[in-house]
Simulated assay, not measured.
Amino acid sequence: MTLSSTELRARAQAASAHLPGLILSAERLAAMVAPGAHGLRRAGPGEDFWQYRPATAGDTARSIDWRRSARSDSEFVRDREAQTAQTIALWVSGGKGMGYAGAKDRPSKGTRAQLLALALGMVLLRGGERVALLGQQARSGRAQIGRLAEGLAGQALAEGDEDAPSPEVLRPNQRLVVLSDFLTDPAWIEALLERAAAMGVHGVLLQVLDPDEENFPWSGAVRFRSLSGALRHDSRDAAGLRDAYLARLADRRDWLRIRAEGAGWHFGQHRTDHPSAHALNWLFQVLEG
């Protein structure tokens, strides 16, 4: 679809109006969750001490910390923390369904996902990592926060329900954080994880749902339709669909978890009526590990 200059200008103005609030909310969230974060901890050729670990068959005598080993019956190696910045890419689904909010006092799934992505980016940048939206150039430094915020705030929902990141823009050994409701055809997830595994890319899948999508509170005669209007279903007894729906949702989550773990990734869940801080803290912890 080609947008007119008037439509493009209107979208740009709407994004710029949303930008200050998004940045302020993300800064508050990032400061609350991980005020002392210093990057993703990992062993490497740095100078700062990280941890002691039991010696393994591949460790040389020179790498053994004999003073620490003398206090026990085992030999220990003193690991240092890597100082080389890592590259983390962020992707937030723009599928039409991400605009859903089951109540006026709850954010849409897309709004919550954008907030989490930006706050996570802030925490990672504060730790010296290189961060970008998927497909863009990763940079470090505070100026990158503005670029992330502009990219997220300017993201318009797609015309249809489907949206997927292109596996072609993955880069070797980066980390990828994918935020979506994962309610549409999941074939793209298998393709993404397969290519990621071949390139040494690890990451996180975070499913963001509205509580109505988890609890299925409807009963009586209900007309269901996707936000794009492409899918419709009329039911005279919505409550009778609840068990089948919840079983399908559980199956989808099991499928996502199994595929993620098989590729060396993590899978998590977040509801828009739950504190953002819990999801952000989990995201940072699994990336740190």
Rank of each mutant, 00 (worst) to 15 (best):
S74Q: 15
D48I: 12
E47K: 14
Q51D: 15
H18P: 04
G95Q: 02
A89C: 11
G21L: 12
E81Q: 12
Y52F: 13
A85C: 03
E27N: 08
D65S: 14
A61D: 04
G46M: 07
G97F: 09
R28C: 02
E81A: 11
V77E: 07
A85E: 03
V77Q: 08
L29Y: 00
E75A: 13
L19K: 05
G39S: 13
Q86I: 14
A37W: 02
S25Y: 11
R67K: 08
E47F: 07
R68I: 04
D48C: 10
R71M: 14
L90E: 01
G94V: 01
E47Y: 05
D79K: 13
W50F: 09
A57L: 11
M32A: 14
P107V: 03
R106W: 10
G102H: 05
M98G: 13
R42G: 05
R67T: 10
A55Y: 07
A37E: 13
A85G: 02
D65Q: 13
S74R: 13
S93G: 11
A55V: 11
G46C: 06
S69K: 07
S69W: 08
K104C: 09
G97K: 00
Y52A: 00
E81L: 12
V77C: 08
A85R: 05
G36S: 12
A31Q: 14
K96V: 01
D65Y: 12
A43H: 15
D59W: 00
R42Y: 08
L90D: 01
G36R: 10
I64H: 06
A89Y: 10
L90P: 10
I23A: 07
R62V: 09
L40N: 07
L19T: 01
W91Q: 10
I64R: 06
G97T: 04
R41V: 14
Y100E: 06
A37T: 08
Q51R: 13
V92M: 04
G99C: 01
A70L: 03
S74D: 15
A57R: 12
L19C: 00
A103S: 09
A30E: 02
Q86F: 12
D79N: 14
R42T: 11
H18G: 08
G97P: 06
P35N: 13
G39V: 02
A85H: 06
M32P: 09
A30M: 04
P54Q: 06
P20C: 00
